[in-house]
Design a binder for these strands. Structure first.
Length: 166
DNA sequence: CCAGACGTTGTT
DNA sequence: GTCTGG
DNA sequence: CCAGACGTTGTT
DNA sequence: GTCTGG
């Protein structure tokens, strides 16, 4: 995400995620956290589990395979020259018990019951909003290892989703 | 007052 | 845009 | 996150 | 090493 005040789009490189713990205070995020929240829809995400010298990609998603929504922020940015851009970022939090062995962070997944409040720019109760940014219940998530095929982003194919044995 | 930073991931 | 440091 | 680039001269 | 593109 590129903050609206950025002079250089490269500022966005350091806003690839926003930490739930600090998103309300950081100059790069607090304005969007207050007024420009969004949902980023997905059916799963990948994390790489480090084991010794190798990294195993893992797929994480809902047990029922339904789509879900990450808690996101968005910004409108106008460069000195060129077309304006709308960009976004995903908020992360500490891992739940399922994710902890894999990674030290996990993206915030919102419960459907909180979508309306999250999306309403008129709702600006910071503490209430922060309270929505919790690790998702472990019992509703599933994780399995996948092929290192997914390491190359050009491999946008169904095989990236297939379970492999470790 | 002006100048400069503003951040996360992973990795060290 | 807004805050911190000088 | 990972993969891949990172450059200049001259010629077409 | 660091940045860009996917």
């Amino acid at each position: 995400m590129i903050p609206s005040w950025a002079k250089d789009a490269k500022i966005g490189n350091q806003c690839i995620n926003a930490k739930a713990e600090t998103v309300a205070e950081k100059p790069s995020f607090r304005s969007a956290f207050k007024k420009r929240r969004c949902l980023i829809v997905a059916t799963g995400f990948y994390e790489w589990q480090v084991q010794g010298r190798t990294k195993h990609p893992m797929w994480i998603g809902l047990k029922n395979q339904h789509p879900f929504a990450f808690a996101g922020l968005w910004e409108h940015w106008t460069p000195a020259e060129g077309q304006p851009l709308e960009t976004c970022t995903i908020i992360t939090t500490e891992p739940n018990a399922l994710m902890a062995p894999i990674h030290n962070r996990m993206p915030v997944i919102l419960a459907p019951t909180s979508y309306d409040q999250w999306l309403d720019p008129a709702f600006q109760q910071i503490d209430s909003l922060k309270a929505l940014l919790r690790p998702y219940p472990r019992d509703e998530l599933t994780v399995y290892p996948v092929s290192t095929l997914v390491n190359n982003p050009r491999h946008d194919v169904p095989q990236c989703l297939e379970p492999v044995s470790v």
